[in-house]
Design a protein around this nucleic acid. Structure first.
Lengths: 122, 122
DNA sequence: GACATCTGGTACCCATCAGAAACCAGGGGT
DNA sequence: ACCCCTGGTTTCTGATGGGTACCAGATGTC
C-alpha cells in the first residue's frame, strides 16, 4: 500500500470507499441484507423511493467492492439473489449504527431545523 | 410525530437525515470536530479536496440540523469557530466507525475491485 | 496610496448524476 | 393477444455537486 490509510488525504483510495459506504442507498440496502439474502425486486419494494436504476447501479458497485455477492437461481422465472459477503458483514455494525442514529434522533434534528428556520425567517 | 421512525419509508423525515449524515464530507468534518472546535479555514486545510463552497454548504446544513454550532469570535481578524453540539457528539461514534471501517478495509475492497475488473475484462 | 494577505464566505457556471419512465427479454396465466 | 412476473438497460431531464472567481472587512508593508 502506498499510503497509510487516511481519509483526509485526497489521493488516498480510502476516500473513494468512504464515498461508496457513506451513501443513503448503501446504508439502506446493507441494512436489509444483514437480515438475510434478498432478491432484486424484494429490495426494490422494501426501500420506498428507490428506482430500479439506482438499485441496479448501487448493487453493481457493492459487488465490485466485494461487499455483496450476486447469485442467479435457476428457478422459473429466473431469480437473482443478493447476499452479504464476509467483508460486507463487517460493515453491518457501522452502517446499522448510522441508520439507527437517524431513526433515534430524528425528533431532535427536526426541532433544530425548525428553530433554525424560525431564526432565519425572523 | 406522524410516522414511527423508519428509514425505509420514503415519506419519513428520517430519510432526509440519513442523507445528510451518510455523506462523505459530513463524516470527515464531524471526525475532525470530535477532537475539538476548529475554524473554517482550519477545516478546509485539514480536508484535502474539500472546496470552500462545499465546506460552507455542509457546515450550514449541519448547523440547521443542530449538529454543529457556529460561534463568531471578536478577534482580529474575526474568526468563526465551529464545534459539535451535544446532539452532534452523539453522532461521533457511528460516524467514526464508518471512517475507521473505510481505513481498515481499504485493502480488501481494492482487492475485490481488482478481481471484479479482471473478471469483467476477461 | 496601492497592493498583498488574512479572515469567512457568496455568485456563477458547468459536468455529472439521480430519478422517472420507457423499453428489453424470457416465461406464465387466462 | 394481452398483461403479469422476473431482472434489468436505455434515454432523457432537472437537480446538484463541485471548481473558479469574486466579495467584504481589517492588517500589514512598500
Amino acid at each position: 500500500m502506498l499510503c497509510t490509510p487516511n481519509a483526509y488525504a485526497s489521493d488516498c483510495p480510502t476516500r473513494v470507499v468512504l464515498d461508496r459506504v457513506a451513501d443513503k442507498w448503501t446504508v439502506l440496502i446493507l441494512g436489509l441484507l444483514s437480515r438475510g439474502p434478498l432478491r432484486f425486486n424484494q429490495l426494490r419494494r422494501a426501500i420506498e423511493g428507490l428506482s430500479q436504476k439506482m438499485l441496479s447501479q448501487t448493487l453493481k458497485g457493492l459487488q465490485r467492492d466485494g461487499l455483496v455477492a450476486r447469485r442467479i437461481e435457476a428457478t422459473v422465472p429466473v431469480t437473482v439473489e443478493y447476499r452479504l459477503t464476509p467483508l460486507g458483514r463487517t460493515l453491518i455494525d457501522p452502517v446499522d449504527a448510522l441508520r439507527i442514529w437517524a431513526e433515534t434522533h430524528i425528533d431532535a434534528v427536526r426541532a433544530a431545523q425548525a428553530a433554525y428556520d424560525e431564526a432565519e425567517t425572523a
